[in-house]
Design a protein around this nucleic acid. Structure first.
Lengths: 101, 101
DNA sequence: TGCAATTATGTCATTTCTGATATATTTATA
DNA sequence: TATAAATATATCAGAAATGACATAATTGCA
């Protein structure tokens, strides 16, 4: 497994020991991770599109810069709920959120 | 507002006093509620399609019957995360989940 | 390079979610 | 109707998510 993918999985709350560990992930787990990753990616591109810094976005979202950073990294401490609400607050339509799935 | 809609909103965590209170909901709030409602509906129809009782579904989902009931009611104590994971565990594909948005 | 701005990471108190249990209500059918 | 099966509601202890703060790391540019 490459380092980038490993880091993403670990950020998502999985312990990755060796290559074969990847096989331990069920389809559900992989789908869940992918949904979060996609939502976080969507959030970041939406923020950048609006030329906002994380600090500015945090103000709009009524949270802190550090949490915005974690949202964009799909950190394990971030829920799908938070990502969905943050995307909506930055102007995403439900229609656009479909693409995350 | 009709009683059915009122009950759904209250279950979703909103206090509904009179008709005009509905206007207090932002687009984001309404979109968020609708997503949850749609995911819960999807979960229930998926369970019924498989001829499962809530008790049986609870076993598959490794939770309790009462929580399954709450998921299907889009109770305020239920997160989108839980609904997404439950749908996936009952065989939904990410593609199918798109329809909830 | 050095500085300022931006983004990332670690930690923690509080809030919210979750599973479980108990019990109530509803539904189906003998 | 009476009973059993299924679903709904209430509550609570433990787990997880959240916002906030401090600080580290990275990026951009004078």
């Amino acid at each position: 497994m490459n380092t980038t993918k490993r880091k993403k999985l670990e950020a998502a709350g999985f312990t990755v020991g060796g290559t074969q560990d990847f096989l331990g992930l069920t389809d559900e787990e992989m789908a869940y991770i992918e949904i979060k990753r996609s939502l976080s990616e969507s959030l970041q591109s939406r923020r950048k599109q609006q030329k906002l810094t994380q600090v500015q976005a945090a103000k709009i979202l009524r949270t802190s810069q550090s949490r915005v950073a974690k949202m964009e990294k799909a950190d394990k401490s971030v829920s799908i709920d938070l990502l969905v609400r943050a995307n909506l607050a930055l102007g995403a339509t439900p229609r656009e959120l479909k693409h995350a799935f």
